[in-house]
Amino acid sequence: MLQYVLKRLLLMIPTILGAAFIIFFILRVVPGDVCELKLGGDGGHYDPVQVEICQKNLGIDRPVYEQFGKFVVGIFTFDYGNSMDTGKPVTHEIGLRFQLSLQIAIMATLVTIIIAIPLGTISAVYQNSWIDYIVRTVSIAGIALPSFWLGILLLLFLLNFSDWMWGIRWSPPLIYKPIWEDPYHNVSQLIWPAVATGYRYSAVATRMTRSSMLEVLREDYVRTARAKGLLEKLIINRHALKNALLPVVTVIGIEFAFLMGGLVVTEQVFNLNGLGQLLVHSVTGKDYTMTQAIVMIIVLVFVFTNFMVDILYAWLDPRIRYS
């Protein structure tokens, strides 16, 4: 097992390096850099000398391999440098935004668990009944429903509903406060994007719960339990659900990493100052250091989650380890 873990761990290195390579070069393929962008504002006065000075200060004029080397070393030493745009350390810029995105991801996951596991189980137990069809339709619709559209409708509803109820138009707070500072403020801001994304997310998990339950329900030990005359409720709760949950947990794990990146669009709708919005800003603003850092963080989370899932599987299914 240890050998397998080590092997998988080593395999992560070329992946991370490759991803770093791709993002580094893709950013530099297209002409124009942060200096030209910043110093060529709406005013229309554009001074090439100033641009050169700026490029020099930021080190964009250095040879590409030198910049790349610095970046790669930075990935492994967690030194992402300063944002080329604001001049502040990247870690400082990312800090609170990461916290915000992480919290929405966690809340969306909770929404998912609350919705997906009961619905998926019911749907599987009553396979091909009307209730199954409804759950399946709703969950497929959930995957089809763009979260940004749901978000827009939610905001519209909040403004109009609050006006109708209390005569005052209410919209979610604009500024993020950590949950331990002001729980009401925090939740009233983040619950809406969590619902908008969690709804989609739960649709995926519901389907997975259902199909996983269906498989388990046909396993021999469930049949044996039935043959022994155990209560159906007991069989489902004690035996089936427990075993069916593993793939569901895996899905939730993988989706969690995905969710962090996928919040990009929802954050725009709800004006949330999260990682996704920062990525859009920095990639369009040609802030190389910042874009590289965010993408690498997302990649690291993604790769690491996949690694954990693999290890989990290998641990449960010894055949994988030796294949």
Partner: peptide
Amino acid sequence: DIFMAFPLIIMALSIVAIFG
């Protein structure tokens, strides 16, 4: 593996944001 390490939207978004 390298390509799979990028979440779908992150990759798509970076490409269009950079190349127009």
